[in-house]
Write a protein that binds this DNA or RNA. Structure first.
Lengths: 202, 202
DNA sequence: ACCTTTCCATGACAGCGGTCATAGTAGCCG
DNA sequence: CGGCTACTATGACCGCTGTCATGGAAAGGT
């Protein structure tokens, strides 16, 4: 993802997100995070006095911001400005990872949600992350001509389908669910923009 | 769910599925499973010599069979035989649980997929579970008049959206994503059955 | 009665988890 | 230099986990 080498603190948050989305929250240890980030273990308690809960929370928040930010970049690169093309780009981010890395990673936010039972704070962080992801998607949809009252529901549908397809794809070890979802959902998304708006938005 | 009290072995598999979907795979201990099932701890090593991996695998398989079996029951109870009604019933199973239990549980299969990194066997069990779930859904769709070649893809879309919505709903602590997905996806599903088949299937 | 199989009980072990306590280093300000 | 703050290092603690070893109870067949 964004492989820039910022300060140790930022690297640790980033590494935490990486490890969480790969192994799950419970299976990622603090020591692993420090090692993966090439950061001193002693820094953990200095930068994250709130312990693992804080680290996980920041990792999830980071993932939410990242996902939201990607939407803007996708919009800029769209060959044709349609909702289905945006969704296809969102899906392609995941299939591309499979092609290059050979493995299908998961979504840190979903991982945090699945074993959030221990910590209410983590659940709230995940909820916030979904919100900061859904917002830009809904905005993008309205930019693409989707009526305002349908933008939020459709954004929810897009993210839900994507998250579910990621899980199924990981289980099967194949991108099929991802590509299927992109193909099947496309027409519905495009049908949401009124005919007089087709081919014309900024 | 199916609260029948069978033998201790079956109870333990059932309890494992319950705990996994609530806490995640890593966070559910073998001792917890035995206690939750009112089963002796010593039975674990007797019934599941394969250890936790075996228990998790059977719990996931059980969940897959359960989900697949539910589809048939949903079909029998449908007020009107449309794909959207089937999907609504699938979604309602989860919103109902929220109404009664006050908490939103997760899906054991999704939970197993998320932290399956440690065990390839678990990943395969999850894949198998998704297959034994998707099969009945696709069959039901064809029974409802969906052309054969679209049944499987649409089943994948339905399950993906449902799984994703479950996760978002858990994070937000609200059923909104579930109801939204059901409402938004309904028209697409019904549109898949050709006009000359509307109102007529067995 | 006796023995075999199935099932249950319990305690021990080794490993790893997060967290705390303590102490050391680097840099900057006076 | 002294003192202060930011950061790093390391080791110890306690709790928990899955697993194993050993031994005890039923049960049922002969």
């Amino acid at each position: 993802m964004a492989g820039v080498q910022r300060g140790p603190r930022e690297r640790m948050v980033f590494s935490a997100a990486q490890l969480i989305r790969h192994d799950g929250v419970g299976a990622t240890g603090m020591r692993d995070v420090a090692e993966h980030a090439n950061a001193p273990r002693g820094s953990l308690q200095h930068y994250f006095p709130g312990g693992k809960e804080q680290l996980v929370g920041e990792a999830v928040a980071w993932a939410g911001r990242y996902a939201g930010g990607r939407v803007a970049r996708f919009m800029a690169d769209l060959a044709e400005p349609t909702p289905s093309a945006l969704f296809a780009a969102m899906v392609r981010q995941w299939t591309d990872e499979y092609e290059t890395a050979g493995v299908l990673g998961g979504c840190p936010v979903a991982a945090a949600t699945v074993d959030c039972a221990a910590s209410e704070a983590t659940r709230e962080a995940a909820a916030a992350a979904f919100t900061t992801w859904r917002g830009p998607v809904a905005e993008a949809l309205t930019e693409l001509g989707v009526p305002a009252e349908r933008a939020e529901p459709l954004a929810t549908l897009m993210i839900s389908s994507l998250e579910g397809a990621i899980i199924m794809a990981r289980a099967e070890g194949d991108v099929r669910p991802l590509t299927t979802v992109a193909r099947e959902l496309g027409p519905l998304l495009d049908a949401a923009v009124p005919p007089d708006d087709r081919r014309g938005e900024a």
